Simulated assay, not measured.
Amino acid sequence: MAQPRDDRPGTAVRPRPTDAPATADPLTLGVEEEFLLLDPVTGESMPVADRVRDALSGVARAQSRQEFRHSMVEMVTPVSLDLASLREHLVALRRAAARAADAVGARLVAVGATPVCEAHRTVPDEPRYHDMSRRFGPVAHDPAVCGCHVHVGVPDRELAVRVCNHLRPWLPVVQALTVNSPLHDGRDTGHASWRSMQLERWPSIGPTPHFDSAADYDATVQELITAGIMLDAAMVYWYARPSASYPTVEIRVGDVCPTVDDTVLVAGLVRALVATMIDEIRAGVPAPRIRDCLVAAAHWRAAHDGLDGELVDLRTGRPRPAWDLVDELLATVAPALARHGDRELIMREAERLRRDGTGATRQRRIMADTGGDVRAVLEHLAAQTTAA
């Protein structure tokens, strides 16, 4: 939960008229990744984020952000038009952050939730963070959680709101692809994404409601601020949201991914999904109207099962094998993947994920192989975080 800012990734895209071809040009991409700073011996969270950022230099320093916990650092990619350049940025930023963490005695780890414990839960000394602490109490002092946020350039804000409507049936599938936080307090929680469970305590986090227009969106946000649910519009933490300042849609449903290749897979799929939804909107296909309680239930199931069980198909309301829905997502976005030149790469990475499992599956496999050795899991995650 970073402070509001005007330098979000993926925003260097010029607005185009809404009657322009939906995918005449590649949609821009940007990714924010949040990481934990852990003690290399105990695995506990270390409150050294300021020191880590001070140890960064050059581009990496400029692309780092202060986060809501002293044990977290966020790295933000520049705008990319292709997955190859996005991957280069991700590798460079992860390695720079890992070197800075190592310089202060910490280990940079791409994991979605605090795996062992976090003794220091005070917020950074910023007025807005103190306001959040006073308003939301213990919720604002939960152990740190880390997400992966993908920004996709969209021609205008009205269209961005409509894209968010169309995304609702598919975002639980995206969430299931990213699950990477089964551990809490040194034990398996039974949930593939414990991060998702923690975040449900915040009143402004969850599935994006259906909105009739950008004006409807803005009016609803203002009503929630007036009601005291949010301090300001920057506290819109819905799983998909239009930027308040730029023509982008931000998808923020996923855990931070364990590897760069996992992040590239998610980013490529998300861009193709947004492009596909734009095509549907321009073709006059209406967004499905799904009851909010069913959407919330589908996200709970995705956070619990990941890809190792079943997901709720929100088009029918029935559970189905998770990989059946992933295959349907891939088929749905295949034309958009081809237009962006991403189809071969994404299909290959999806097969790798099918073979190796999600981040949560991999962590559980190591736990099983080592008799529950959390340190072995964290050592593996740290190595995967910076692997090229």
Score class of each variant (00 low, 15 high):
140 A>M: 14
208 T>I: 07
261 D>K: 06
207 P>H: 09
290 I>H: 11
43 G>R: 04
275 A>C: 05
137 G>A: 05
242 P>G: 04
272 A>W: 07
34 E>V: 00
8 R>M: 14
94 R>G: 02
255 D>A: 04
337 L>W: 05
318 R>S: 13
252 R>Y: 00
313 D>M: 03
45 S>W: 11
292 D>Y: 15
133 S>D: 14
26 P>Y: 03
116 V>I: 08
70 H>Y: 15
329 L>C: 05
340 H>A: 13
323 W>L: 02
211 F>Q: 06
67 E>K: 07
46 M>H: 00
6 D>Y: 15
65 R>N: 11
2 A>V: 14
252 R>Q: 01
261 D>L: 07
330 L>Y: 03
119 A>M: 14
120 H>I: 15
324 D>F: 06
384 Q>Y: 07
264 V>L: 00
355 R>G: 00
77 T>D: 09
307 L>G: 12
187 R>G: 05
165 N>E: 07
156 D>L: 10
48 V>C: 15
309 G>D: 06
228 G>A: 11
133 S>N: 08
297 A>P: 08
19 D>E: 13
277 M>G: 01
145 V>M: 08
193 S>I: 07
150 V>E: 06
355 R>V: 04
101 A>Q: 02
49 A>P: 07
151 H>T: 11
299 H>L: 05
328 E>D: 14
77 T>N: 06
87 R>K: 01
57 S>N: 13
229 I>F: 14
